[in-house]
């Protein structure tokens, strides 16, 4: 998982390493493909266009939150103890959803409520950044404290109740379609493309990965590390704010318990590393991981497997994929 920190490849080992890396990369893809093929043959209705867009839709919320986590991983490395992590991201989305829903209920229009939700998300992100960059608290711990704050504020705002929301924006997001694809899926596609560009094709993204991969080298090259870490956390907060609107759209309300998504989000972001060439967190990898998790949930539903088994089988499959990858990497 810490492939970013790997030393330079030894001379003469290039070819072997490349082949084994190809095997790893393909291994995860083959695993994903096999599962899709299995569902295509056994689960009735799996391959219908309606169901396929449904999978994308089901993966949207998890995916965008996992992008936030991926940005934080990219800017701070994936060493869980010493590197960065954002445990507050799911609670942050819950808080933003509460802000949005409560403002809508109080009669403010979407022109106030949507920016308020996004700003809330960014403010929570900035608090994380402040704690990690300025106060130098361990990210795991800093974001844990922020998670508590966000969860508490969400509960205080909503008094632990469901706050229903009705608005044209929510209707468009929930039921609108364009070119036969739902609005929610379009949001996912647009956010994915934008983030792939920012993270992997822009100067900012290159520097972000430099800061996460080798902080000393980045500093020596004149990159201001602190602002990139701040940026990663604020970006994650902005994505949490964006997701909060999508969550409200999907449920037509702000509902307690969004914080529960933390572990699936972590799973998606970490699993995403096996879908990348160098086994590092990437937006594309996280996209595939979110779709993978969404596909599993959808396939189980169609096969009529008892919901008791879903999380266990997901956990086991994630372990198999990761174990196969690390096996290929070490051999």
């Amino acid at each position: 998982m810490t492939a970013i920190a790997d030393g330079p490849p030894r001379a003469g080992a290039h070819r072997g390493r490349n082949i084994s890396k190809l095997v790893i990369r393909l291994g995860a893809f083959v695993g994903f493909a096999l599962i899709v093929i299995y569902f295509a043959f056994t689960a009735r209705g799996f391959t219908t266009p309606y169901n396929l867009t449904n999978i994308v839709e089901q993966s949207t919320i998890l995916g965008i939150l996992a992008y936030g986590m991926t940005l934080v991983f990219a800017g701070t490395g994936t060493d869980v103890q010493r590197g960065g992590i954002d445990l507050s991201i799911a609670a942050n989305a819950g808080l933003c959803a509460a802000v949005y829903a409560v403002l809508m209920r109080a009669g403010y229009g979407g022109y106030v409520a949507v920016p308020a939700a996004l700003v809330t998300g960014m403010a929570v992100g900035a608090l994380n950044g402040f704690a990690v960059v300025a106060l130098r608290i361990m990210p795991l711990l800093a974001t844990l404290a922020v998670m508590n704050i966000a969860e508490g504020l969400e509960l205080t705002l909503t008094e632990n109740t469901v706050v229903a929301v009705n608005s044209p924006l929510i209707d468009t997001l929930a039921f609108g379609r364009f070119l036969g694809i739902s609005t929610l899926s379009w949001v996912f596609v647009i956010v994915s493309l934008a983030l792939i560009w920012i993270a992997h094709y822009s100067r900012t993204g290159l520097r972000l990965y430099a800061v996460g991969g080798h902080a000393e080298a980045a500093r020596a090259a004149g990159v201001r590390n602190g602002s990139y870490v701040y940026g990663a956390y604020i970006g994650a907060g902005l994505l949490a704010g964006l997701t909060s609107i999508l969550i409200v759209a999907r449920l037509s309300s702000s509902t307690p318990g969004t914080g529960q998504m933390l572990l699936p989000v972590l799973a998606a972001a970490l699993l995403g590393t096996v879908f990348s060439r160098r086994l590092i967190p990437t937006i594309g990898g996280t996209l595939l991981a979110a779709l993978f998790i969404g596909t599993l949930a959808n396939g189980f539903q169609l096969l009529g497997i008892s919901s008791y088994w879903v999380s266990g089988v997901q956990g086991a499959l994630i372990l198999v994929v990761v174990a196969a990858t690390s096996f290929a990497k070490n051999s």
């Binding site: 998982m1 990761v322 690390s326 096996f327």
Partner: peptide, 11 residues
């Protein structure tokens, strides 16, 4: 299986 502890225990 050489899985990183975070992912292994998450699974």
């Amino acid at each position: 299986l050489k899985i990183n502890p975070f992912l292994a225990t998450l699974g």
